[in-house]
């Protein structure tokens, strides 16, 4: 049981074990631990960064959606204004055109009526001459009575003298 040289042998073994641990075991394991610690903290930092970016992106997205909605509404409103405008324009033009057509139609009618009257007047004159000739027993010379005929024709209502009067 007494102490003997075993003690020194044991001390040598102990010293060797401690030296070996310090030299070959502790450093690689500690560096692995340190590396992992760094990786974990870097990962956590990255996660935080990612979360922050995501939050920003969400805010941006919400902002953009709002903006887009606003723009869309504006466009719709603009389109509505424009369509109303176009409609009014079209109606206005259509009215114009219809007025023009109506006026044109009326002028045409008047012109035709005047032409018809003129025709009728001249035919009436011819007819009157023929009737007069028959009554008088001889032919009325158209050339000789040309002045009278044109006077008659002018007196005929609706003749060349009052074409402008469209109400009659």
């Amino acid at each position: 049981m007494a102490l003997n040289v075993t003690l020194f042998a044991q001390a040598v073994v102990f010293a060797f074990l401690a030296w070996f641990t310090m030299r070959y075991i502790w450093p690689p394991l500690m560096s692995a631990l340190g590396d992992r610690e760094q990786r974990i903290s870097a990962g956590l930092a990255d996660a935080d960064e990612g979360r922050r970016i995501l939050k920003d992106a969400r805010e941006l997205q919400i902002g953009m959606m709002e903006e887009n909605r606003r723009k869309a509404e504006e466009i719709v409103a603009q389109a509505q204004r424009r369509s109303t405008h176009i409609e009014e324009e079209a109606r206005r033009k259509a009215e114009e055109v219809s007025k023009y057509i109506v006026a044109e139609g009326r002028a045409e009618v008047r012109r035709e009526r005047a032409a018809a009257r003129r025709e009728l007047g001249s035919q009436l004159a011819t007819l009157a001459l023929a009737a007069a000739g028959r009554i008088l027993g001889h032919e009325v010379n158209a050339k000789r009575h040309a002045g009278m005929l044109s006077e008659l024709t002018r007196e005929f209502p609706g003749g060349a003298g009052d074409i402008a009067d469209g109400t009659s």
């Binding site: 003997n4 042998a9 044991q10 070959y24 075991i25 690689p28 394991l29 692995a32």
Partner: peptide, 29 residues
């Protein structure tokens, strides 16, 4: 000058077991 062979043997075997196990782990860390 007495040397306790059993004490030495077991402590060395266990010490070697310790450092080889930990060294193995350290190499593959």
């Amino acid at each position: 000058w007495t040397l306790h062979l059993d004490t030495l043997l077991f402590s060395i075997v266990l010490g070697v077991l310790f450092i080889s196990l930990f060294r193995y782990a350290a190499l593959r860390a």
